[in-house]
Write a protein that binds this DNA or RNA. Structure first.
Lengths: 337, 337
DNA sequence: TATAATGAGTTAAACGTTAAACTTTTTTGC
DNA sequence: GCAAAAAAGTTTAACGTTTAACTCATTATA
């Protein structure tokens, strides 16, 4: 391993001077020396040791991307298709700015803080359900925190979210406007404080507004895989009164469509379906899925923008961005009027 | 920040002793002292500083997950659905074993090595196209390297791959056996040395074996998004002689199916399609897609198994695993006999 | 001309942890 | 009862980098 001292010796100069050149504090160094040092760096193949740097400067240039999971069972970090799109954008931008990205799932505040402290993290992207006590733990760390799709009662952290409530409200309202009155709700397991809960509340709110009584029996919760969707379909067909279904995730909507078709149901003739997310799949299923569109890539870009501004010590004019959604009409909803 | 010295002072013992306790070298420490130290650690909330540890021990407990991209334009780290499934499994297992995961795209060997050196990485997962010179650069680092879906002429690295050639060969042969003779090939842009090239070669090999001349004009290359697929469809319909199409990725197959249906083509009546990967989407499109199945999650699990064995200094009985594929017949292929 | 300011560096200490080489006391074997 | 071994530590140096505080010429200012 070649160190800064090797470069110093090779150029007949002190380690400090080399360090200064590397960090662009060249005003203290002559042009000639700068050149000699840069040549030596290239020649000897010097690569800065981040551990040493991090140790002395207590800034590591590492940003954590942490997903809070309630339990690790059956949890795949990337299960949410959103993550894939966002992480791609985040990695690219961070790299361009000289930062590094570390991935992690955590189950609680202690794990989270320990993780951040161990590495002297410079920043944190947080996804998943944000509990109140996370705030206290994180605030003490004094690092930029950007929340992604996390619902928070009160926090000073940056937050990039989505109008989950309104989106789901609009999905439901769309069915109502098309003359539907018996509308079910299918979703991956709803956890308190998560996006799915918001989407559930949006559904309920639209029903209430239209004077349609909410019925527990037509809320279907299950895992997202195809087999679970097939199970849900067993329940759905036991409610022949249903003419419409709001599904809080496109992946699941697609699974349910497949399951219903297997049972001989026609979509949208027998039952209309509205999804959520507008992942590329939505255009590919048959019939193409009417769904609530969100721009996942943009969410990632906005999040990393926030992060960079915070890292550069800029003061922000906004700390919260809630992206709006938009209904994309395709062919999975029948007009009953 | 509370350090190992704070713990030492609090318990009236030396830093080394604390370090020993933390690392389970307790044979040198009395039970009583161990307990006192552990209590102090808990009480004061001590968290080891990985930078310091890494600096002195030249082992960081960080594993890199690096994706080699030819050019960063239009490249999303997670574009390949495989990555999502694999990274989930890898993160979980690494964490359980006290390792950390850093994500990165690189464009060349230099970037790769610099990345690994900066952080004193303990191991590397590598995906994407593996160039010969990568080997020389990596070998000098003396860290475990596990290749994922990378084709390599000769290397001492562990390798978890897939029978891409055979899978694609079987996909093509399936069409031939069903009486097809005019079979096109659609794929995301084929790069030398990648999995897509293998799949392309498998296609050609099956044609050759059946005595069907290969025609350049019916190989269609494009990006994977829906609009690019629609473009491909413009070209495909200009070859009305085609009765079958091998598509080297399910995502693309789904896009092409949509595009073709928009143009009034019936699948499989007008044209039969075989995909590759068997992502969940394959069951959800209409008609359900006949495709080549691979177990992406297993790939990730095997890769991380390799890594852990290498990290633990175990000698391996195998260093190469090539997963086999299997044709899953659904409804996108018509029997012409 | 004396003094201040600038340019181009250097030295020494510090960051938190670990490894190697010691030390001191107690126990064991014969 | 004495040497050897084990138990339970300690001391010191080192890992590679940065930062704060110096130094020593040379140039500019009044």
């Amino acid at each position: 391993m070649v160190t800064i001292r090797d470069i110093a010796e090779a150029t007949g100069v002190s380690a400090t001077t080399v360090s200064n050149v590397i960090h662009g504090k060249d005003n203290r160094v002559s042009a000639e020396t700068i050149q000699k040092i840069n040549e030596a760096i290239k020649e000897l193949g010097y690569v800065p040791n981040m551990s040493a740097r991090s140790l002395v400067s207590s800034s590591s240039r590492v940003i954590g991307f942490v997903n809070h999971v309630i339990t690790r069972e059956n949890t795949n970090f990337m299960e949410d298709p959103f993550h894939s799109a966002a992480i791609g954008a985040i990695e690219a931008t961070l790299r361009e700015n000289g930062y590094f990205l570390m991935l992690r799932t955590v189950e609680n505040a202690e794990e989270l803080v320990t993780f951040l402290q161990r590495w002297n993290m410079d920043g944190l992207f947080f996804t998943g359900i944000f509990k109140d006590k996370f705030f206290d733990s994180l605030a003490g760390l004094h690092i930029p925190v950007v929340l992604l799709d996390s619902y928070v009662h009160t926090s000073g952290f940056c937050n990039v979210g989505l109008e989950d409530f309104t989106g789901s409200y609009n999905a439901t309202k769309h069915l109502i406007e098309k003359g539907h009155r018996q509308i079910g709700f299918a979703s991956p397991n709803i956890k308190d404080g998560g996006v799915l809960q918001e989407r559930f509340l949006g559904y309920k709110s639209a029903l209430a507004e239209a004077g349609i009584p909410f019925e527990k029996g037509i809320v279907f919760q299950q895992e997202m895989d195809l087999n679970s969707c097939r199970q849900i379909c067993n329940d759905i067909v036991e409610h022949p009164e249903l003419t419409g279904l709001v599904v809080s995730a496109d992946i699941m909507a697609a699974g349910i469509m497949t399951g219903l078709k297997e049972k001989g149901k026609r979509i949208p003739d027998d039952i209309s379906i509205v999804g959520f997310d507008d992942i590329s799949l939505a255009q590919l299923v048959d019939p193409p899925l009417t769904t609530i569109h969100q721009d996942m890539n943009l969410k990632g870009r906005l999040a990393v923008d926030f992060m960079l501004q915070l890292l550069n010590g800029k003061t922000l004019d906004t700390t919260e961005i809630t992206l709006s959604t938009r209904l994309v009409e395709r062919s999975s909803v029948k007009d009953l009027r």
